[in-house]
Amino acid sequence: MSDARLPDDLDALVEGWLDGTLDAAEERRLGRRVARDPDAALRMARGVLVHDRLRDLLRVEAADAGEGRVLPAPPVAARKRSLSWLALPALAAVALLCVMVAFRPEPATAAAALDRLARVSGVGDRTYAVRVVDHGPGGPRVVASEAGGRKPGVDGARLSVRGADRFVLVRTFGDGTRHVDGSDGSVGWSVPPTGRVHVSRDAARYRRGVPGEGVDIPFIALPENLLRLRRGYRLTLEGTAADGSRVLVAERDDRRRRGPARVAIRFDAGGTPLSIAIDGLDADDAVGAADAGPRSVVLELESRDDLGPSFFDHASHHAPDRPLHWE
């Protein structure tokens, strides 16, 4: 699209965004306007409505016609008006709700088990104990105190998660003091034992220090990361144990893909992951022995207790007089 587009031509920017015809600068300009100006956001929202509904409407009509290639004859208005806005995705979503409430069958296949795990793992609060099984070539990461400027290793850490993006990771120094990283879903934060509390509008900022985050392991954002195992991994669903739990094993069979070599998830009858064993974390991204981090880690479910409304806020993890440093 031409650089001659007027800066105020918001409607044309929206149209171009929807059809994918804007260049990078124009897309950024649209994003900035929508971020800064509520009226622009509202105008864009209204501009999207017809585009969004058109797709669902026309695909429903094509499906009604029994084929996807030709638009059907004009519909009977009354019939269409009653259902037109309940287009395919809406119907599918509502049907999915009904099916999920009415039936919670045992997953028959590994892929179905994985999908179910991904769904259920985003529900409720869970706290996992982190245990390093194999420290890798760098050996155990023992950090005596915060004095050296390094964070402690994850062995013995506690990881609490809520939904897809809230987490609290508590690691302990050799001297018993704690380093806590977390996110409330919109603000990322990092609380060392002393000094400033670091906060950022990037909710994922302090996930990066967590070993394994760099290779996309299912450490924190379980739904997101579990679904990544759909591709490049061979999935196997093992039989039901005496306690009703089952184990889903994902082994990487495509070395071009990033990620751990093997993930074994034991889950209960409700689909909640009870333990997640992750092997081969150093497979691809180890820069050197010192940077490699643990090779094998197990997360074991400790609690499903509700952690309350403010647990994922940084203020719950430091004294109120600690200074904040926005990054």
Binding site: A41, A45, V50, R201
Partner: peptide
């Protein structure tokens, strides 16, 4: 291209559109 502020702005905007406007889309067919 869209940062979290843009996403937030859009989420608020769509929630603010009156139900009557969504219902008018029934005429689209």
């Amino acid at each position: 291209r869209f940062d979290s502020d843009a996403v937030e702005g859009l989420a608020v905007a769509f929630a603010e559109i009156p139900a009557a406007e969504y219902r008018r889309l029934d005429r689209l067919a």
